[in-house]
Simulated assay, not measured.
Amino acid sequence: MKILVLNGSPKREKSDTMHITRAFLDGMKDEAPQEVHIVNIIDKHIEFCTGCFICKRNGGECIHNDDMSALLSEVLESDLLLMSYPLYAYGMPAPLKVFIDRTMPLSSMAMKKQGDRYVHVGQADFSHLRYMMICGCGFPNSKHNFEPVVTQFKLMFPSNHTIITVPESPMFNAPEAAEVTVPRLALVRQAGKQYAGTGAIDNDLLAEICSPMISEDMYAAICNGEIK
């Protein structure tokens, strides 16, 4: 499988969330060989979308001459688009949002009804693509944190999507937390192997991965310096 990983964290390879993503990719490789390309979005030259819609009227050519054209070509050549990023203000980090905004050339101005909503008609064939979101956050719980970004991802990619959200993710960058993070990453690796084999992750396994690693109160106390 050809996998394009878009790392949306400004921390690049030091991203808390990338620990989760790397474990997932290792699990996929356990099942079968994978062709993986990781792109740190922060290092790419991507101009802001101006909303001129020229790309939607001229077959997909943008007015900007930057790295986005090559990235879109790679997206269309991939089998799995995996977006890995930390939760910023209940959404994705700004550099990744700029990338998403600049995917406008993939669709035209024409609209069609799909289910109970309207979508733009594509100018490119990306029906083969599968989509994955791996998102971590620094809060100790998932409720009232991930809902906006999960809704956004599902609306952007209404089919063939898989979503992993992990609270307490800064613990993955803390060696002293290995007692709980190592077993959790083992579960993520198991999920990657499962996904590579079946295209899905067992609901019970996914729920365990997305749950807090330690009690919410203890995590908050550690973050607040109350527990050394």
Results as ranks from 00 to 15, higher is better:
F53A: 03
I100T: 02
I201P: 02
K112L: 08
P170Y: 05
I209R: 11
V188I: 00
M92L: 11
S127A: 04
A221K: 15
M213K: 06
K56Y: 00
P183Q: 07
M1S: 09
P175W: 00
K154R: 12
N173S: 10
E13T: 13
S9L: 04
E47A: 06
P93V: 01
L185T: 00
I163K: 07
N145C: 11
C223F: 14
I63P: 10
T198C: 09
P170K: 03
T181Q: 13
F146C: 00
E13Y: 07
E226V: 02
A32C: 08
H19A: 14
P95L: 04
M1H: 07
A221Y: 12
K112M: 11
E168F: 01
M171T: 00
M213D: 05
C49I: 00
V182R: 15
R102D: 05
V182F: 13
P86R: 01
S108T: 05
K2D: 05
G136V: 04
A124H: 09
R189T: 02
R22W: 12
E168G: 01
T162K: 08
D26T: 07
V121Q: 10
S9F: 07
M111N: 11
M133E: 05
T50V: 08
F48R: 13
T151F: 12
S215Q: 10
L72S: 13
N141R: 11
D101W: 13
K44H: 06
S108F: 00
L4V: 04
P86T: 00
A221T: 08
E176L: 09
K97D: 01
H161F: 14
E226T: 01
P212S: 02
I46C: 04
I63N: 10
L96M: 14
M68I: 09
V188S: 02
P86A: 02
D101M: 04
D16P: 14
F53T: 03
I214E: 12
H37A: 13
R130M: 06
G197R: 10
N58S: 04
M218E: 13
A70E: 15
A23R: 07
E77D: 12
A178I: 01
G27V: 00
I164N: 02
H161V: 10
T17P: 15
I3Y: 06
K2W: 04
N224E: 11
P212N: 03
L81W: 01
R117Y: 14
L129R: 09
V98G: 01
Q114D: 09
C62S: 09
M92C: 13
N160Y: 08
R189P: 10
C135R: 12
G199H: 13
L206H: 05
